[in-house]
Amino acid sequence: MKNFIRCQKYIYITLIGLFLSQDLIAQGCVAIRQFSGIGNAVGQGNILEKGELNISANYRYFKSFRHFRGTQEEPDRLTNNTEVINWTHLVDLNISYAFSERVFGVLSVPYAYNERSSLYEHGRTERHTTYSQGLTDLIIGGGYWLFSGENSPKGNMAIGAGLKIPTGNYKATSRFYNVGPNGGSEIRPVDQSIQLGDGGFGIVINGQGIWNLGKTTFLYYDGFYMLNPRNTNGVQTFRRRESEAIMSVPDQFALRAGLFKPIGSAHGLALSFGGRIEGVPVRDIIGKSEGFRRPGYIVSAEPGASYMVKDFTLGLTVPIALLRNRTRSLTDILDSNPDNKIHGDAAFADYLVNLSLAWRISKKESDLFKSF
């Protein structure tokens, strides 16, 4: 029991890393917008006692540039200099509070800066860059641990739910070249992959668990599914196909699991290694699935490390893509015929960087804050 409680202070940092991403939470165009909050909601409550706070800041970066159609990479895009490149930087502030030993709440406030370089969006003659920057969609949620501390000497698991609030600008614009009147520039909505929101309220269902496999080895797992009931958001894509003229508001999902091992004393280094899958489905569970989306998924290996000093923990995880699959979208399927099977592509990253700093605030310190 003591080992389990002590190592909970290590393992939470591996659980609060970004999923989603972004952009899941994922690595490239398949992740149609920045989405990281629930990645922090899944894992924020597992070291807190009643009345305690946990405040964390997470930075995520990736560069997507490798094009896939299905699971097949298209290396000629790089050779011909026609690849689309996305650079995403995302920082989110996460606050969790333990209402009791087993009930906790979470708030996540993300901010993103994105760049997108392409030829095809600028008349297919010159490469230019579009930008988006600002607050993305907030997450507010909570969870419940199924077992009390006395009844969970070998581990515990929690279930939770959250609300994704459309605070991010889902109509972000930038300047596009060679596409306006007389071949001039024009202000248009940026691509779906760098929009700051999707314009819909989302319902997030999540779960997590941690189990002691030995004296100092632990199994962790967590995941979420976000239901996005809204069909489309009214934002133009300026794509060629009529069925893809307006942006879709898709569901998203992520699942990760692995092993976690503290190295040394209770305050020090810990290592982790696991796997994860994240993506966007072809069809939503609730509501229609019309409009443009890039469905698909990424399977990654996820090494990580963390270091704790008193109540502060620094963590780093670097998911490395093993399998990237841009599945056929609903519009691909509907617009195809026996003589022309349509299958859109998407750009993916090779890896994702998650850097986190967390501060666990004790009950005594938390009460001090309340006195002001």
Rank of each mutant, 00 (worst) to 15 (best):
A112C: 03
T130G: 07
L138F: 00
L146M: 10
A112G: 11
E115M: 15
V109P: 01
L135P: 06
P153Q: 05
G142D: 04
G123E: 09
S108K: 04
Y144N: 09
Y120F: 12
Q133E: 10
I139L: 04
Y120L: 14
P110C: 05
I139F: 13
V109F: 15
Q133S: 15
L138E: 03
N156Q: 15
T129I: 13
E126H: 09
Y113H: 13
T136Y: 00
Q133G: 09
N156D: 11
F147Y: 10
G149V: 03
M157C: 08
F104G: 13
K154M: 12
I159W: 05
E150N: 10
G134C: 05
N114Y: 06
H122L: 05
G105R: 07
Y144M: 01
G134P: 04
L107W: 01
R116Q: 14
V103Y: 09
A112Y: 04
V103R: 11
L107V: 12
F147Q: 12
G155A: 02
S152W: 00
A161H: 07
R124M: 03
G149A: 09
K154S: 11
W145M: 12
S152C: 08
I159S: 02
G123F: 01
A158R: 06
Y113W: 06
S117N: 08
T136Q: 05
S117L: 06
Q133A: 06
G149P: 02
N151A: 14
Q133D: 11
N151S: 15
P110Y: 00
L119G: 09
S118R: 06
S117Q: 13
Y131D: 10
G134V: 04
E115F: 07
S118E: 13
G155M: 08
G134Q: 13
G160V: 01
S118F: 05
D137R: 06
S152I: 03
V103T: 04
G141I: 01
T130F: 04
T129P: 00
T125V: 08
M157Q: 04
G123V: 00
P153Y: 09
G141H: 09
M157V: 02
L138D: 09
L146C: 05
T125W: 00
N156A: 06
N114D: 12
G123A: 06
G123M: 09
S148G: 15
N156H: 07
A112N: 10
I139D: 01
F147H: 14
G160C: 05
I140N: 02
I140A: 03
F147L: 14
S132Y: 05
P110V: 03
D137A: 05
F147D: 12
N151Y: 02
W145R: 15
S118A: 15
L119E: 11
F147C: 08
F104R: 14
S117E: 12
K154Y: 02
F104M: 04
P153W: 07
N151D: 15
S117D: 12
E150I: 01
A158F: 09
Y120T: 08
W145D: 07
E115K: 11
